[in-house]
Design a binder for these strands. Sequence first.
RNA 1: GCGGAUGUGGUGAAAUUGGUAUACACGCCAGACUUAGGAUCUGGUGCUUCACGGCGUGGAGGUUCGAGUCCUCUCAUCCGCACCA
Length: 813
Amino acid sequence: MSYNPSEIESKWQKIWDEKGAFEPLDDQQLEKKYILSMFPFPSGRLHMGHVRNYSIGDAMARYYRKQNYNVLHPIGWDAFGMPAENAAIKHGRHPKDWTYSNIDYMRKELNALGLSFSKTREFATCDELYTKWEQSFIIKMFESKLLFRESTTVNWCEDCHTVLANEQVEEGCCWRCDNEVELKEMPGYYLDIVKYADELLEDLKELEGKWPTQVLGMQSNWIGKSQGLEFGFKLSTKSQEKLGGAFKSFEVFTTRPDTIYGVTYTALAPEHPIVKALIKAGLLADDVVEAIANIANMSEIERAKANKEGYDLGISVIHPLTGETIPVWTANFVLASYGGGAVMSVPTHDERDFEFAKQYNLPLKVVVDGGEEGSAYTGEGKLINSELFDGMKNVKAKAKIITYFEEQGLGKGTTNFKLRNWGISRQRYWGAPIPFVHCDACGLVAEKVENLPIALPEDVEITGEGNPLENHPTWKNCACPSCGKDAIRETDTLDTFVQSSWYQFRYATHPSKWETTGIDREDVNYWLGVDQYIGGIEHAILHLLYARFFTKVLRDLGFIENIKEPFENLLTQGMVLMDGSKMSKSKGNTVDPDGLIAKYGADTARLFTLFAAPPQKELEWNDSAVEGAFRFIKKLYDRKSKVTLNSLPTIEHSRLNKEEKLARAKVYEAVKKSTDVYEKTFAFNTLIASCMEALNALDKQKNEQVWSEGMYILLHLLEPITPHVCAELSEVLFNSENLAHKIKVLEEVFVQDTITLGVSVNGKRRGEIEVESGASKETILEQARASVAKWLENKSIVKEIVVPNKLVNLVIK
RNA sequence: GCGGAUGUGGUGAAAUUGGUAUACACGCCAGACUUAGGAUCUGGUGCUUCACGGCGUGGAGGUUCGAGUCCUCUCAUCCGCACCA
């Protein structure tokens, strides 16, 4: 009978379903593995990226299950988010209905791929039960002051009609819709991730060698720790008077305290309170006010692209060490949100300051030897024009000057981070409501835990205009949890990245406890950390940073213990490409997994994805290579006729002929390779190649024992990759016995009677010899010399090198 | 500018970690079986040369008996961040 994937695959999927074959066991004494692929957004259909992600994870899960590990391999749905609302706007479908029906469809698709997920632990993040516990964490964070509400300048996407976190802005545009982000002042909720910046940075060290260096680098870059000096510039008496006594000084931050004597001006961000005060008091010329307003209205990219621009504010400060009077400017390149929104400017030793100073003819003063007035010298050197620090190496002077400022009470050494607090408010409907209430009498009040979940109202109109929760006629009216008077419910919902920040703990919590607890400490202690996490590089910062942060917060709040990092090992899989570019609907270069499975079956889809490239690399789609994968499975299936023994035979290796020995060697090479691949390199492509070689070698001999052994082992090795066909053949041929235990490597099969050695002369390959496996060095050399006699004529041999089992190299002169 | 990678046949990619470069697969060529094949099987396939040979892992050096692998410099491509003081 010829290979019929659809029949075999549906048969086994049904068997696995009925047996609950992939449920983790409750016995926490067992050795465990937690294999996790990033959960999908239920967009409606799987794409090839999912197929790749889940094929990798599934191979690992199946591998460890076969090694008798207790394996947790769950799946769920990252189910809140904009697309559900967009579908509502476009097609008039309710987001909830749209989401859950997509989940139903995609669940079937996952099943058709034969993925070995636990079914009892599946959930969607929009399940009210999930929202309930998430809201309880949020309230706890509020009580612990890790969550707060404030009004500040935020990234606003007009298209999505919502605020975005810094991590969600890519080159000034919205990560989801690519619309240019505007800056806008508005209130919102924030998580104090900056408080954890140092720990998030520090713990990256523990992930070295376990996470891709690229991801570690990106995270550490994003956190952006820098150390320096923070100090105040006192405003001149005249300037203080000008400002009506409202300001005495302003703080600046510098990483170059060594250049402190080179300060010739200072610059404030256009949003700085002093600038605002000057404008309010009418102390700036109309055209300057207008220009400042223009800058403030610019988006991030516009500002980044714009030329340097600034205005003298007509006020001055006193240099803390020299007592000199220094002008204060406002400049478009000073960021409001970093280092207090003010800088000291040393044009001779900072590129930006130099450019600006040149443009506006501001004074220059060289303070590091090696510098000159014609450019900004940022290299090392001895300090000059720096009073008591003259002659000191600038690198050393940094610390000295900080100490001096501290002694004099002028300033202090500080650490600054690029990382900003995580804005978690979204002005949208399809998300978890933020469980707070605004009360005229009590202010901002957290909802009572017993009232959770605060669920979304179902009767909403989703038009794309405004916030549907705010527009809902009654939902936001409620009683204040504190005083009982009429109050208003918060209408912002949580960023969906909040849901994906703790799902790894939810899966680990036994489903029987889901009603009564959000995260079970004991279960989490057993299952976490995730032994292998697999997902796309696009989450290098976003999700992976948030989830790391959440883990630390949940630990500090006592929800989990002993866990520093959620994801022990991380594999970031490459994109699936077609004709060199990312598959996308708009380009029309997609491959539909359903169609692929219908044509070739899930096993071929899985085999191809793992064979075409190592998982970390991009995968270029190739239809005829898919055919090749299909051919291999057909061939494997066809060779079942060669198997005559239904268990692993004991073979007397020495009695075999050359081809038979070679076939066995290839088979056991694949066994060796398999451990390496599954546990270390994940280079499934090489394991599959090794299995192909083994099958090719088996084909070159006729020994029934060797065939039976070979198939027994190959089916075992390939089961995690092509589970259906392997399960089928294993059942028919070996009563599935070959899938039930680990295969031992028989070293004896690698011992050969004769060995082929390459012969090189001066490192160039000139010949080849075949010697008895136990041949002496002399014998080998004798043969080697004879084999390349031609090259040795009229030459003398200077050195002879014999590398056992590899080659001979003769060095001649 | 900063950070991280990657450069090997026509293509996707291997190389036991310093030891016979191009395994495995796709494609291509030839042949077999066929009424036919876009099915299947067999063989061939780095470049160059009539040949002996020569040349070959982005490029240039170096270490070594021996380098895709180690070192120095350099070029190209890709990704992330980017006026963070």
